[in-house]
Simulated scan of single mutants.
Amino acid sequence: MPKRDRAPLVPGVDGSGRTIRALSTSGRRTRARLPHVDDRLAPPETRVEYLDGAELFAAPAEPPQATQHFDLTYVLGAHVAKGYRGAVDMLTRTDEASDHAPDASIFAQKPDRGGRRRLEEMAFEVCEKQALAVPTDKARRLIRRGVRRVFCILVEQRRVLEWSRETDGWQPLPKNAAIEDPCLVRPLPIQSFFDAASSDDAVARALLDKRVPALVEALAAREARRAARREAIEEARGAAIGELRMAQQAITTVLRSRGIDVPAGVARAIAGCDDVRKLRRWLKREATAATASEVVAGSRRQR
């Protein structure tokens, strides 16, 4: 693929890729002990979240936001790398007064030293009609808690934003970009969030990179079938060539055994014939032919 056609990789808006220590809501580093990410303010299995002490209600969605949620998790789930786990609407305690759930997230599968789940490393929000202020506040708190990367999908604009620590704000990603991250088995194309064909293509490539056993077996079986077909074709071709050579030799042998001279022109006609049906007719004809030329009669006159 020409270099100019390659999707630009997005390894991280700030380019650091490092884990950021928890910050206070004012943005300063703090040594204060934060609640564990699994310590709840919001009752699980409800639609309640808390943001800076305020109770939020996560209303059920309808198209196109609901379908965008599905498309996001479909593509994202296939790209989760070994050692990581994906989640949908998983509550995360970001500070004393905030307990909210990104629409989708990825976190390390290995528990922490206390046997509890680790903070997510990537988080995704889907935003349609609601103001960007709420996803912005959530993103800022997730980043301060230590989440490495936070993204926001704008449904109506069909755009993806990533939170930048450098600017403390959202940065639009190019539409032809691909998100590159250790949490992902391969770069995730932005376009795959919005286009069904691109989604299927991205998922297929990710599953192939993961070497999913069912796909590996299916590909191996297909290659075995192709190899068998190639072998059968070669065997059939070899058998056909063998039959031609045997028929050509039989004609010449029978003529000479009958004491009939085989002129060079007739010999060339026999050796150059690749029609086995014609050779069979010649074999029958030579039993009564008086000359070699009579055998190949109907062919171009031989000298």
Rank of each mutant, 00 (worst) to 15 (best):
E45S: 14
T19W: 10
A54W: 12
V75W: 03
E62D: 09
P44T: 12
E49F: 06
R18M: 10
Y74E: 13
Q65G: 02
P64A: 13
G17Q: 05
G17A: 07
P64F: 10
R31G: 00
F57C: 08
L34F: 11
G27P: 11
A42K: 03
A42R: 05
R33T: 08
E49H: 08
Y74H: 12
D39V: 08
L51I: 06
L41V: 05
Q68W: 01
S24F: 01
L34Y: 07
P64D: 09
T30C: 01
I20R: 06
R33N: 02
Y50A: 00
V48K: 09
G15K: 05
T67Q: 13
Q68P: 01
P35F: 01
R18Y: 03
P35Q: 03
L34S: 02
G27L: 13
V80Y: 00
G27Q: 11
T30M: 02
S24C: 00
R21N: 08
R33D: 01
G15P: 04
T67I: 10
A78C: 10
A42F: 03
V37S: 09
A66R: 15
D52T: 04
Q65I: 11
A78Q: 06
T73C: 14
E62T: 15
T30N: 00
D52M: 07
G53N: 08
P60N: 11
G53P: 09
R29W: 05
A42Y: 04
A78M: 09
Q65V: 11
E45W: 10
S16A: 14
S24Q: 04
T19S: 12
D38F: 04
T25D: 13
S26H: 06
V37L: 11
R31F: 00
A61C: 07
T25A: 13
A32E: 09
D39W: 01
I20M: 05
V48L: 14
L56D: 01
R40T: 07
D71H: 13
R40I: 04
Y50S: 06
T19N: 08
D71C: 09
Q68F: 00
V80I: 15
T46Y: 08
H79T: 04
R29Y: 12
A66G: 13
L34M: 14
L51A: 00
H79M: 05
L56V: 07
A61M: 15
T67W: 13
G77E: 12
R28E: 12
E49R: 04
L34H: 04
D39T: 11
L56R: 12
E62Y: 10
G15F: 06
S26V: 01
T19L: 14
I20G: 00
V80D: 01
Y50W: 15
G17P: 06
L23I: 00
R40S: 12
I20V: 11
L76V: 11
P35C: 06
H69L: 12
A22I: 03
F70D: 11
T67H: 13
G15Q: 05
Y74R: 15
A22N: 03
Y74F: 13
A66E: 13
A42C: 07
A78K: 03
A78G: 12
R29T: 01
A32N: 01
A32I: 01
L23D: 02
D71A: 15
A22V: 03
S24Y: 01
A22G: 08
P64G: 09
E62I: 09
A78F: 01
T30V: 07
E62M: 11
R47N: 15
E45H: 14
D71N: 14
R31D: 04
P35G: 03
E62F: 10
D52G: 08
L72E: 07
T67C: 00
S16N: 12
V37R: 07
E55F: 02
V48T: 15
